[in-house]
Design a protein around this nucleic acid. Structure first.
Lengths: 225, 225
DNA sequence: GGACATCTTTACAAAATCTTTATAACGCAA
DNA sequence: TTGCGTTATAAAGATTTTGTAAAGATGTCC
């Protein structure tokens, strides 16, 4: 299992440091941003699995950042705040925050809420093993088998295949796939997709020239079946 | 939209009453259980959209109830507790609780957390299928079936059919169709329509020479039924 | 630093789709 | 029936989109 990646958006270095130490010792990969602007850029260029957002930022209100993130980011966002203000909490939750913690928070609780949020966001559609004809994907162990033989996939190839498998039957647009795998700012790089779909087909299809699993929907995207 | 149903499992009548009043005035349907045992029975016989579970029950520990519910119940469970005990919070969240609030809680916050939890749990299941005789169009998956067989449509063909299906029974003028699918400046290119209606009929009609779905309204446009 | 795996970019061929043209068919009124 | 406006169908370009190979770039591990 790959490390889950958490983006911290907070202007106070001591808090960032504290969070970083706690998260890294719990086997998360940590990325830090000291302003809302930086946070938006970082999350767009490489989507993290969860965002910890301080609501009291110097450059722009955390609420603004939250709304902007939610235009396209659909993984958990946990709000941290020094204010224990009910209106603030309600507004954040109604604008799509996954959870809201008041500083000073207890690290054990924060970690449990992070675990819970990540578990739920990944659980949405995965039953740990997805079977699809001769292909079996173990979403927990990140192992892909074809006719009981393990297939070696790179990290990106796996992420793409797992995303396909979680949305079996649905047409996924180029935009959506690029946004989920590479990040919001990669939505026009459709050539990446062609290359990676090509290598995936070589690895999982019986006959890559006549794909049975990854179907192209010309002008729109791809569909997995 | 039907009213969302919330099951309260709590042994203290005043708390149940308080919750009931608040929830009902916010347009939820409320079901109450005064013990863990009763809660389990009620939730099994008619699964609610969300469960509010008091962790300090007289008959059995709320943690036990939580674990038992999570064997099969996968909608939100929000824990209410008088104890502000970190170990308790962590254990509840790790055992599948969606959220954990400490009494006395603020009703506005509780309601916001309920809204948030329900919104997220409903987000996962959304497939709007438009059926029309032997034709079924899944607007989310972007897939068209005829007699349970998937039909391969090009992007433009699909857009046109989806537009027809969304306006079943209505006569759509040439102008309107061209404007919606090709754009404002194509309003006079009625030949495009003839060509694409032709290919659509070949793909979805039993007998394309005697169309039953896409009907020509001479001089005006087309109608889908 | 060098070998290795992986990702990104480029170039071009192949396939699919869209647009245009040509022509046939239909419905209706004179 | 004939003529006219409209619609249907086929098929030939034209264009867009996709697939594939391979070269450069980047990063990682020893």
């Amino acid at each position: 299992m790959n490390k889950a990646e958490i983006l911290i958006i907070d202007d106070e270095p001591p808090i960032r440091k504290l969070l970083q130490i706690n998260l890294e010792s719990n086997d998360y990969k940590v990325v830090q941003a000291s302003s809302g602007k930086e946070g938006l850029i970082l999350s767009a260029s490489h989507p993290p699995d969860l965002i910890l957002l301080d609501i009291g930022l110097p450059d722009r209100s955390g609420h603004e950042i939250l709304c902007e993130l939610r235009q396209w980011y659909n993984k958990p966002i946990i709000i941290l705040s020094v204010q224990d203000n009910e209106a603030d909490i309600v507004s954040a939750l109604d604008n799509g925050a996954t959870d809201y913690l008041t500083k000073p928070f207890r690290t054990g609780e924060l970690l449990a809420r992070i675990r819970s949020a990540i578990r739920r966001s990944q659980n949405t559609e995965n039953n740990s093993i997805v079977s699809c004809g001769d292909i079996g994907i173990d979403l927990v162990a990140r192992i892909v088998k074809r006719k009981n033989e393990t297939i070696k996939l790179t990290s990106t190839e796996y992420n793409l295949l797992a995303l396909f498998a979680k949305n079996e039957g649905k047409v996924l647009t180029h935009q959506y796939l690029l946004k989920e795998i590479w990040g919001y700012s990669y939505q026009t790089e459709t050539q990446y997709l062609r290359v990676f779909v090509g290598t995936l087909r070589k690895k999982i299809e019986e006959n890559p020239n006549n794909p049975q699993h990854i179907i192209t929907e010309s002008g729109v995207g791809y569909r997995f079946q």
